[in-house]
Design a protein around this nucleic acid. Structure first.
Length: 432
RNA sequence: GCAGAGGUGGCAGAGUGGUCGAAUGCGCACGACUCGAAAUCGUGUUACGUAGGAAUACGUACGGAGGUUCGAAUCCUCUCCUCUGCGCCA
């Protein structure tokens, strides 16, 4: 959500931003907002006057009652009642106007950064850089499920019986590798000075509706029956919800946090051959990074955040590239965003393993995340950023494909070995 | 889960229907005193919205949502949270 003052003072900038995002159908919203805003303020002025009157009447009645002037008090009571009817009429209308205004404001996209490339959809995203050489293998790399099976590392049949499609059992060294990657990623971020955090895995509906739209919620969130609780789709939900409607002491900024959580997603409407296996699933685990900072620092942290993920993947010897998200592919709350993609030697292309976003103050304004500015002593909206550190098991696809050897073994990079009992290779299961 | 107690400003803590945005204390800021400090004294010190250049004015907010009333921190209903005891349990 953007600052309404920006629409009041510079509606053309807001319109231009909407055009840049190829959302021309939203252009009428700007004028709609301006007129609703004016209407709301007029109603508020009128309501304030009426309420001032009500307070006045009430005081007078109090005085008259004490003095025992019953009749006069009754007369003012009658006037006050009339006035109160007007107050409730205005309040009802004002609430309606406010609801319309809020709805329209939610639809206005955040102002995007100047350096965001313009484009209609993800086909216009721009490769920024590559890290490590994306080498082709000397042999045909099998589909990740086949690699997992060759390692005796997955049981999808049982998972389908116990939980249905989109779930998995990871077993043996693969399960251990899964944990090893998360443990390594956790320690990696702690070494970068981030505070490790394990958040609630369920959140209330008011937090859910704060962090996402109704459509997103419907498509993603699992609800706990009989409770006002939802399983989180990412730890960002509970990590950002943590600061909802709070004022953070300016001295405590920036908050640099890294959180672990399982993530649960309905993934409504997901299908396709490349999604067979553990690419798109209902349950996965993720190490995330969250930064809450002063506005002047968010550009700095944005660059830091994505570079940490790159560094992490490189240290595990997995080639990655960075892909700058174009204007049309950028979610409405985002100022800028960059995907981290890992190399798939099987598909001979990169695929997404993480996403880094600077939301500037849009998310904070929506959720009421403020900080006390040290210099001015005033409260202001903070900037929020988030980025994936690593999210297995999807990330394991890249891992297995890149580290599979011709003999069927899977190489374990040095940095992970201490989490893998010192193993240098994961051995394939013996054929019967 | 059951029973009891409670949720008020940065903190502690009064206030049980009417000049209450809220006593008092602490903290904090500024000033006086002082060579300087402590102590003391004085002044100030919530947030959000609307109007205004500003001083300021008005409105809203006493966990949250509704209700009663001319008027609610105060009464009623629901709900959330905290504490104490009991129960249950990794």
């Amino acid at each position: 959500m953007i600052d309404i003052n920006l629409i009041r003072s510079n509606p053309d900038l807001v319109r231009e931003n909407i055009r840049k995002k190829f959302q021309d159908y939203k252009l009428p919203l700007v004028d709609e907002i301006l007129s609703l805003d004016e209407k709301k303020r007029a109603l508020q002025r009128e309501g304030d006057e009426r309420r001032a009157k009500r307070n006045d009447f009430a005081k007078k009645i109090g005085v008259l009652m004490r003095e025992g002037k019953r009749d006069e008090a009754e007369e003012i009571k009658r006037l006050s009642k009339e006035n109160n009817d007007a107050v409730s009429a205005i309040e009802t209308e004002c609430a309606e106007v406010e609801a319309q205004l809020k709805k329209a404001m939610f639809a206005i996209p955040n102002i995007i950064a100047d350096d965001v490339p313009l484009g209609k959809d993800d086909s216009c995203n721009v490769q920024w850089n590559t890290y490590l050489e994306a080498k082709e293998k000397s042999f045909d790399v099998p589909y990740h499920l086949d690699i997992l099976e060759s390692l005796n590392g997955i049981d999808l049949d049982s998972a389908r019986r116990t939980s249905g499609n989109g779930f998995y059992y990871l077993t043996g060294d693969v399960a251990r590798l899964h944990s090893a990657v998360l443990s390594y990623a956790r320690d990696f971020m702690i070494d970068k000075g981030f505070t490790y955090c394990i958040p609630p895995y369920m959140i209330r509906s008011d937090v859910v509706s704060g962090v996402m739209s109704f459509e997103e919620m419907d498509g993603m969130m699992y609800k706990i029956e009989g409770e006002d609780l939802y399983l989180i789709g990412t730890s960002e939900h509970s990590m950002i919800g943590r600061f909802m409607n709070t004022v953070i002491d300016g001295e405590k900024l920036p908050l640099t946090l890294t959180s672990y959580s399982p993530c649960f997603r309905k993934e409504k409407g997901a299908h396709g051959i490349e999604e067979r296996g553990i690419y798109r699933i209902h349950q996965f685990e993720k190490q995330e990074m969250i930064v809450v900072c002063e506005p002047k620092d968010s550009d700095y942290w944005y660059e830091k955040l994505w570079s940490y993920t790159v560094e992490l993947f490189v240290s595990m010897q997995i080639p990655v590239r960075t892909l700058v998200c174009c204007s049309g592919d950028l979610a409405d709350l985002k100022y800028k965003s960059l995907d981290i993609e890992a190399w798939s030697p099987r598909q001979k292309k990169y695929f997404e393993v993480g996403s880094c976003s600077n939301l500037t103050d849009a998310q904070a304004r929506r959720l009421g995340i403020r900080y006390k500015d040290l210099a001015t002593g005033k409260n202001a909206f903070a900037h929020t950023l988030n980025n994936t550190v690593v999210a297995p098991p999807r990330m394991l696809i890249a891992f297995l494909e890149n580290h599979l050897q011709a003999d069927g073994r899977v190489y374990v990079p040095e940095v992970l070995r201490k989490y893998m009992g010192g193993k240098e290779y994961i051995e394939p299961a013996k054929k019967k």
